[in-house]
Write a protein that binds this DNA or RNA. Structure first.
Length: 932
DNA sequence: AAATTCACG
DNA sequence: GACGTACGTGAATTTC
């Protein structure tokens, strides 16, 4: 068929596909020889998806992928600086360029590039030919340089956003129609391609001028008429540069091609060619997908490749089948499973209980799996519903082995050092077993494997991991126990219903383990997992089980005092407002402040509600008495509801202590988080809040001690960024903020004021977070320009910090992650996004190695701590990021401080020798307020 | 369930 | 040239 009316040509911007694929994916290598193939893999995925998405009635009749030819183009002859500030392609991308051409041909799609021309010119020429032949053309690209081609049957399609760009879309972007796009571009220039344009004129101004004068030529001819003197001068003086810019952005629609549109006709796929290529690249998942679409059998990979193929396991092909899950009802079946476990050497285990609180949880059943697709459930505590009779709630369901018999049979296996027990979130299950005096060891944990491998990429809950890596959606727990008020506990579920859910969890855990464990080496995080994750599990479990004693009476008295004060404040507030309203409602408060009292400081937020945060109320406090009272009320309300009231409900009836739960995967940086209750945010900054710490007490005859790292993150910054001045200051034990102030502001140390020191402190902390002038200005409540000056001077004085930031950003952009000193990888998938998301990712990437290294250090200390204090009457109870809290008999306070301090100060060694000393401060007392 | 606010390092 | 603007968390409360 010759190309003509009714025909539809698709032109794919190949280079855009390659770069998008490269940056969107983590570095991926071919397993058999380590060849980098991340971009090729992503490129093939995009082509496959393109083909699947374009099979319908509007399918193209002709298609080609157009590439840039390597080397210079004719534009470099026009202007030697054209695209001169483009960084060279990353080393691991270069070998992939020819492979993407091979991939295109393997998909049986025409593949074109021409020496001395850019892909955009070939696309332009073909689009014009298609238009001349009365056919349609769709350009699959979002490159704004191609927008000049739109119109008259030519459209663009942004494949990522699946958004078509027509004439209207171009006008939206450039403010002019496609025929004037080059004029606007010539004026505005392009920093990415290094097109100079007219200095000081951007797209907005350019569109305004072009629309007023009709065309670039008319504008330049009549430049004398322009009113703004600066703009007039620019256009007159830079005429040559602007005309050159137009030549650079103008695409060549009239290239001589050695092929015609007819050569681009869509061809049927050649399964052998395509699958052969994908097999050569060892892209397992894509082979299956492509074979499925083609309706042919997927070829098997060569054996070594199969064994190692990334993100694919033997388990992937084994279906999930609830019929293969076994209900263990008798002793013979249980013994059979135990024998199978000993034969295999490892087993995936999951426990079902009647509570999410491990301190009180009782076993409902145990699941085991040693082979993907096969699992069993051993119910031991399922009870009949309470509906039958008064005692029904305690009566056991049928066909369950006695709990003690099951535990006696399993205990030797669970404690056998030769048998590896695999869990998803091992800490929970180990604590449950600990309730039955069973010490499970050794243990692997798929949640922690995922965290070591994928921190920052996604969460590590089992449901999410299963969907992502096994392509399988587990049975939602809601279908068994319901949700909200009518929720029941798992031990009340009928065993027949519980079986498929529970056994599946062990099955999934085993499959995830088979997938993740070999990846530790390939991603080089084995040491992270083995030294920072795995050994921490028993340490945290022990701390949680000890808990910390909290005095209910103290909290209760404080609650009452807060309630009284709040009532008084509330009356005053209503008085001042002239009406009653809910002080706790930001919405109602906003209306009182800004509508009724007409205080300055209008709306904010996307919901249209007034913002009434502490910053705003503090500013308003100078205008009116009410905001200050609200702030006082809020502080009390927070203290009462979150602390003095809520903490009481967390006191364990049996132990009289509060048992928090640490989430080891809680923060992407390696920090822990603490929940139910969160004991990492107990008030300390305000005098009234700090008194809540008086309720955290030591037992009679014991004391609480607290040891915290002094300015650990700044020390790490000094080491990582290699700032001599900072390192020396730390080595000499000087006041680091005063030192910074004197360096940055030029004030001698003996003339230092607290205000200047405070500013330096804010800058020191800001730097760790990637602060902007705007942010520092807001924090210090100083003019923005002044804040920017501070920051500039800071970087001038400590240029190494700027270098660290630039290097970190560059590393994140090429690798997709950043690293701590101990090799922990924190992924930064958004670093190559554009807009504000990239800014957030950039600041997070700067902060992560610092915060993460600090987290690694205290983890190392915690892991060594039990051994260091084993002969002392002391227990480690809490961790608050840079602080550890112990309970110790009065007689051993000094010895414990000495032992713990030594472990903490030496925690980096022998792996790392820091250039700065780590200093640990210590306190002691009958309660946490005194100890801190 | 989302948004807002505020407690901590 | 515009846009947003300091990192990492968890919990309580109000609003939709």
């Amino acid at each position: 068929m010759g190309f003509g009316k009714g025909c539809h040509l698709h032109l794919i911007d190949g280079s855009a596909f390659i770069f998008r694929a490269y940056h969107a994916l983590p570095p991926l290598t071919r397993k058999s020889d380590g060849l980098p193939i991340g971009a090729v893999s992503g490129f093939c995925n995009m082509l496959q998806r393109y083909i699947e998405d374009n099979a319908g009635p509007d399918a193209p009749t002709h298609v080609a992928v157009i590439f840039d030819h390597s080397g210079k183009s004719f534009r470099n002859d026009l202007y030697d600086q054209y695209k001169a500030n483009r960084p060279p392609a990353p080393e691991d991308l270069k070998p992939q360029f020819p492979l993407t051409r091979d991939a295109t041909r393997a998909f049986n799609i025409a593949c074109k590039e021409i020496e001395g021309f850019e892909a955009d010119d070939i696309i332009a020429t073909l689009a014009c030919q298609a238009r001349a032949a009365s056919g349609r053309c769709t350009i699959i690209s979002s490159d704004k340089d191609l927008m000049q081609l739109v119109g008259d049957g030519v459209e663009m399609l942004d494949a990522m956003k699946n958004k078509r760009i027509d004439r209207e879309g171009v006008i939206e972007k450039f403010g002019v129609g496609p025929e004037r796009v080059v004029d606007v571009q010539a004026l505005a220039g392009d920093s990415v391609d290094n097109v100079p344009g007219a200095p000081g004129i951007g797209i907005k101004t350019a569109a305004l001028l072009i629309n007023e004068y009709g065309s670039l030529e008319d504008l330049l001819d009549r430049a004398e008429e322009i009113k703004q003197p600066k703009r007039r001068q620019t256009l007159i003086e830079k005429r040559d540069q602007i005309e050159l810019s137009k030549q650079l952005v103008q695409l060549d629609c009239d290239m001589a091609l050695d092929f015609t549109l007819d050569d681009l006709e869509v061809q049927d796929a050649d399964p052998e060619k395509l699958l052969g290529f994908l097999a050569e690249m060892e892209l397992r998942t894509l082979i299956k997908r492509a074979a499925d679409k083609l309706g042919v059998e997927a070829p098997s990979l060569p054996e070594p490749a199969l064994a190692a193929a990334e993100d694919a396991s033997a388990a992937e092909d084994i279906p999930f089948d609830a019929a293969k899950y076994e209900w263990v009802k008798d002793r013979a079946a249980l013994d059979r499973w135990i024998a199978a476990i000993y034969k295999r050497g490892y087993v995936a285990v999951d426990t079902e209980t009647n509570s999410l609180d491990e301190m009180v949880a009782e076993l409902a059943g145990i699941c085991l799996s040693v082979e993907p697709g096969e699992a069993c459930y051993i119910p031991v505590g399922h009870k009949k519903g309470a509906s039958d009779d008064l005692f029904g709630g305690e009566e056991l369901q049928e066909d369950q082995l006695p709990l003690t018999e099951v535990l006696d049979a399993l205990q030797p296996m669970l404690e056998d050092p030769a048998i590896l027990k695999i869990f998803q979130n091992a800490k929970y299950d180990c604590k449950v077993f600990a309730n039955y005096k069973i010490a499970v060891t050794p243990v692997d944990d798929t949640m922690l494997l995922s965290y070591a491998l994928h921190a920052g990429e996604h969460n590590h809950g089992m449901d999410a991991l299963s969907e992502r890596y096994l392509n399988h959606q587990p049975i939602p727990i809601k279908t068994l126990i319901g949700s909200g008020k009518s929720m029941i506990t798992f031990d009340k579920v009928a065993i027949a219903d519980a079986l498929p859910y529970a056994a599946e969890d062990a099955d999934i855990t085993l499959r995830l383990w088979q997938l993740f464990k070999p990846k530790l080496h390939r991603r080089q995080v084995s040491t992270v997992y083995e030294t920072l994750e795995r050994p921490l599990v028993p340490v945290l479990a022990q701390m949680e089980r000890y808990g910390i004693k909290v005095d209910r009476d103290t909290l209760s008295r404080m609650s009452n005092a807060f309630a009284q004060k709040m009532a008084g404040l509330e009356a005053e507030i209503h008085e001042l407002a002239g009406q009653e309203f809910n002080v706790g409602s930001p919405k109602q408060l906003g209306e009182i402040l800004f509508d009724k009292l007409e205080l300055p400081g209008g709306k904010k937020g996307k919901t249209g509600a007034y913002a009434t945060g502490v910053d705003i109320l503090e500013d308003l406090a100078t205008e009116h008495a009410l905001p200050g009272l609200v702030l006082d009320w809020r502080q009390l309300s927070k203290l009462k509801s979150t602390y003095t009231d809520a903490l009481q409900t967390h006191i364990n009836a049996e132990t009289g202590r509060v048992h928090t739960s640490y989430v080891q995967t809680g923060a992407n940086t390696g920090r822990l988080s603490s929940t139910d209750p969160n004991l990492q945010n107990i008030p300390v900054r305000s005098e009234e809040g700090r008194r809540i710490r008086e309720a955290f007490v030591a037992e009679e005859g014991k004391a609480l001690i607290s040891l915290d790292y002094s300015q650990v993150e700044l020390r790490i910054l000094a080491h990582i960024a290699d700032i001599d001045a900072l390192k020396e200051a730390f080595r000499d034990g000087r006041d680091i903020h005063a030192m910074t102030a004197s360096e940055v502001f030029g004030v001698p140390l003996d003339e230092m004021t607290s205000e200047i020191r405070r500013r330096a402190k804010a800058i020191n902390f800001g730097v760790i977070y990637g602060v902007s002038g705007f942010g520092l200005a807001r924090n210090l409540r100083i003019p923005r320009g002044e804040a920017q000056d501070f920051i500039n001077r800071y970087f001038e004085r400590f240029p190494g910090i700027r270098t660290y930031m630039d290097d970190t950003k560059e590393f994140a952009k090429t690798h997709g992650y950043v690293q701590t000193l101990f090799g922990r990888k924190i992924h930064t998938p958004e670093i190559n996004a554009k807009g504000p998301r990239a800014s957030f990712a950039y600041r997070a990437a700067i902060n992560a190695p610092i915060q993460g290294t600090a987290a690694d250090i205290i983890r190392r200390a915690m892991i060594r701590m039990p051994e260091a204090i084993k002969d002392l009457p002391a227990k480690m109870l809490l961790q608050v990021h840079d602080e550890l809290i112990f309970e110790v008999e009065d007689s051993a306070v000094d010895a414990t401080i000495a032992a713990a301090r030594e472990v903490m100060q030496g925690a980096t060694e022998p792996a790392i020798k820091l250039d700065v000393p780590l200093i640990v401060d210590a306190g002691r007392g009958a309660n946490w307020a005194e100890a801190h």
